[in-house]
């Protein structure tokens, strides 16, 4: 028996990981806690027994084909955000972020200590998939506006680049939603083809030059109070791995969450300071009446989506219950402290 164990331990694995983000993207592809960093960590921890080759979007398959490719087993792993799969599994978006949902601390608590991760695995099981958090950008910004937004009325007729669920909420308030690939956001915003654009946060947005196209930077992260990077793994492949390698993957993924989050927090702080002090950016939260109106619409939208889809309802209920519990704790612990 000991010989047999050793044989299995020394068996090595060569996997492919695809990514929904293009080559060179900081955070999403390279940098501390990024998917390429994760691959290096796993290789080092396993002494080369688990070798994951990383391919950015377009290198092996197009950006959003990772779900299908991992499910079919053509690649073993994929790095992305779960809300990209909302067209396949509507409930998946809860595992990236929820508008007016929990912040990063709450989200992590729900995923790791609440039912979050369990529900995520349950949801993906029928597709032959398993997923883990592998990174976090922290809170994202409302976005860049060419003109100040002072009342709900100002949203009516506004042309904005904003994908996903938040786009639906905005459109209820009269915003005209424009879907644009990353490369066209800048010229469109600069020339006024669109009046506003959401992207990520100060560090990533500055890299795209968005501050040269619009000066009003609204900072209320209502639509993405946190943002979880998803490590997607083919379930059959996962089950075939020895326990120690499984554990290394999980630990490397958790380390990546911490590292990428702290990297984002540090870089965003520097970038926002630079934008405000050197680039004439006016950074401010959205006016309160707008935020409350957005919240009303979001609450209705989420509730009606949950009622239409039993899978979503189950995740929604768990998420909302946890959020309520976490919020009352945070209201007494964190909140008073933040105002100091």
């Amino acid at each position: 028996a000991p010989a047999l164990v050793r044989a299995q331990e020394s068996k090595s694995f060569n996997f492919k990981m695809t990514n929904a983000y293009p080559p060179g993207s900081p955070f999403y592809v390279q940098g501390p806690g990024s998917p390429t960093d994760f691959c290096n960590k796993v290789k080092a921890m396993s002494g080369g027994r688990l070798n994951i080759s990383h391919f950015a979007a377009g290198e092996l398959i197009p950006a959003l084909e990772g779900f299908n490719a991992v499910a079919q087993g053509t690649v073993e792993m994929n790095a992305a955000n779960a809300y990209f799969w909302a067209g396949n599994i509507p409930a998946a978006q809860f595992f990236t972020t929820v508008p007016f949902g929990m912040n990063t601390q709450g989200m992590m608590a729900w995923l790791y200590q609440g039912d979050g991760l369990k529900l995520w695995h349950e949801l993906y099981e029928p597709h032959g998939l398993i997923a883990f958090p592998m990174g976090n950008t922290g809170v994202q910004m409302t976005g860049w506006f060419r003109e100040p937004i002072e009342s709900v009325k100002d949203l009516d007729g506004l042309k904005m680049r904003i994908p996903g669920l938040a786009g639906k909420v905005y459109s209820e308030l009269g915003v005209s939603v424009r879907l644009l690939p990353g490369g066209e956001i800048f010229p469109a915003l600069e020339r006024g083809v669109i009046d506003a654009a959401e992207f990520v946060g100060p560090f990533q947005d500055r890299r795209l030059g968005l501050h040269n196209a619009a000066k009003y930077y609204y900072t209320t992260g209502w639509h993405e109070p946190t943002n979880v990077t998803e490590l997607l793994i083919n379930k059959e492949v996962w089950d075939s791995l020895p326990k120690d390698l499984q554990m290394m993957i999980q630990m490397a993924a958790q380390a990546s969450v911490l590292e990428s989050l702290s990297w984002s927090e540090a870089n965003n702080a520097d970038a926002l300071k630079d934008l405000v002090e050197n680039e004439g950016v006016i950074a401010q939260p959205l006016p309160e009446p707008i935020v409350s109106r957005l919240k009303e619409v979001t609450d209705d939208t989420l509730a009606s989506m949950a009622n239409a889809d039993p899978q979503m309802k189950k995740v929604y209920d768990s998420y909302m219950t946890f959020k309520k519990k976490h919020a009352s704790w945070a209201a007494l612990s964190e909140k008073p402290l933040l105002n100091l």
Partner: peptide, 19 residues
């Protein structure tokens, strides 16, 4: 063929609401 079949079984649609 398998690729199309997979999209059919998933009833894959746009990830954007209204898509």
């Amino acid at each position: 063929l398998a690729y199309v079949n997979q999209a059919y079984n998933l009833n894959e649609g746009s990830p954007d609401p209204g898509g």
